[in-house]
């Protein structure tokens, strides 16, 4: 698979990233390099290998359903750029 410029632009848009011309060029090249490396791995015979869902060989890590104290509201809002009445205020969500 080849990554095209448009793919990079599309992904950048989804991630709300503004890329310069040079960046778009560079990331297109780098992403293709990565995919080429993956293509090499694809040549391995994995017919008898279980798909890996997680890098750590662990399963079923749970916590009991117990409520504990949350953070105070002031601490929660400490990084909010525009708090109001205990809320995070955000700009217009959807254009009409």
């Amino acid at each position: 698979m080849m990554i095209k410029r448009e793919d990079v632009e599309h992904v950048a848009m989804l991630a709300r990233l503004e890329l310069s011309e040079a960046d778009t060029e560079k990331f297109t090249r780098q992403l293709n390099d990565i995919l080429q490396a993956v293509d090499k791995l694809k040549k391995l015979d994995t017919a008898n290998v279980e798909p890996t869902a997680h890098a750590a060989p662990m399963k079923n890590v749970f916590r009991p359903d117990k409520a504990r104290l949350s953070w105070p509201q002031e601490a929660v809002l400490a990084n909010a750029p525009d708090p109001v009445d205990g809320f995070f205020r955000v700009p217009k969500i959807m254009e009409g």
């Binding site: 929660v76 109001v84 009445d85 205990g86 809320f87 995070f88 205020r89 955000v90 700009p91 217009k92 969500i93 959807m94 254009e95 009409g96």
Partner: peptide, 12 residues
Amino acid sequence: TILGSDYSKEDY
């Protein structure tokens, strides 16, 4: 409505 709003307040 959401379309008519200038801003929104978020409660997490």
